[in-house]
């Protein structure tokens, strides 16, 4: 027992600073972050942590210090198998180690641990070659991280299972004169993401125990959703992606079509022909929960 009992908060702040120090507990004990709370040297560590019959105080603290990063890196490995495959275990662990220092967990759940991982990779990436028009290898890694994080969020979030989802017949039942005013209500899990690489194919190959090679750059428009509790992804054309984006932004179908015509070089006739097929696909994939029409008498007059 020390002569002057220390405050519990003081001990906790000190211990946390020590075991979370990236250079280990010995450096941690001497760090300003720890010494702010308890000014003790490594030689005097027994004033804080007592020894056992078989271990000295430093060895005992190292159990916690070693476990802190090892445990959380392991969680990140589990969540990002494709990224880990792409860069190898050692490099992945290095990124994860850096990330945990930059963004230590502030949540009670490990599901939040990787929330900023792709952002961290972007923040710390070396500058890209300004003369290179195509995305580089590092961009591929960042995109993989963003995709795998999204998979986690979609997997855990609300999905279509057990609730209503839009059926193909519901769209066909809308009278033609009201069709332009209809809006589609997306599933909360629906995500639209654009990438410079076909990262979804790479991620799927890794998850199926394959050994894929990094792909060449390729504009990739992904729609990510969930069905039967499994995260699903579908690559779509740029025009279909624009249409989905407009709908997800809350535009009625008529306005959505106008925006797509504005933003792409697709012809109206082509778009009109494609939309019917898209609706069938979207309904089967359970991208949308319902269709709503703005006229107040719509439901009663149906």
């Amino acid at each position: 027992m020390s002569e002057t009992p220390r405050e519990l908060g003081q001990i906790q702040q000190w211990m946390q600073a020590v075991i979370m120090h990236p250079d280990g507990v010995v450096v941690g004990i001497e760090s300003a972050a720890a010494q702010t709370h308890i000014d003790v040297s490594v030689n005097d560590i027994e004033q804080i942590i007592t020894r056992s019959q078989t271990q000295d105080s430093i060895e005992r603290l190292q159990v916690y210090g070693n476990a802190y990063f090892a445990r959380l890196v392991e969680v990140l490995r589990d969540e990002f198998p494709a990224l880990q495959h792409a860069i190898g275990e050692e490099a992945f662990d290095g990124f994860a180690f850096g990330y945990l220092q930059a963004y230590p967990s502030r949540s009670y759940t490990l599901a939040d641990l990787s929330r900023n991982f792709s952002q961290y990779l972007r923040e710390t990436r070396p500058p890209s070659d300004a003369e290179e028009s195509e995305p580089d290898w590092i961009e591929f890694l960042i995109e993989l991280a963003a995709l795998e994080r999204t998979y986690s969020e979609v997997f855990s979030g609300p999905g279509p299972e057990g609730g209503d989802h839009l059926k193909p017949g519901e769209l066909q039942a809308i009278p033609p004169e009201r069709w332009a005013d209809a809006t589609l209500v997306p599933m909360p899990c629906l995500r639209l993401m654009q990438f410079g690489f076909p990262v979804h194919e790479y991620a799927t190959a890794v998850r199926q125990a394959g050994d894929p090679h990094p792909p060449d750059p390729q504009e990739t428009n992904l729609v990510i959703g969930r069905r039967e509790f499994v995260v699903r992804r579908k690559a779509v054309s740029h025009v279909e992606f624009e249409m989905l984006s407009a709908i997800v932004d809350g535009l009625a179908l008529g306005d959505a079509i106008e925006r797509v015509l504005d933003r792409t070089d697709v012809e109206f006739e082509t778009l009109a022909a494609d939309i019917g097929e898209w609706f069938k696909t979207w309904a089967a994939a359970q991208f949308f929960r319902a269709v709503e029409v703005s006229e107040p008498d719509w439901e009663n007059g149906r």
């Binding site: 519990l8 702040q13 211990m15 946390q16 075991i19 476990a67 967990s105």
Partner: peptide, 25 residues
Amino acid sequence: CWTGVASLNAHDLLPLPYNEATLKH
């Protein structure tokens, strides 16, 4: 146990010093 302070979470089950103040807390 405690799992963290200063809004951080170590995701570990960290030990407490066992004394009257900790017990009261």
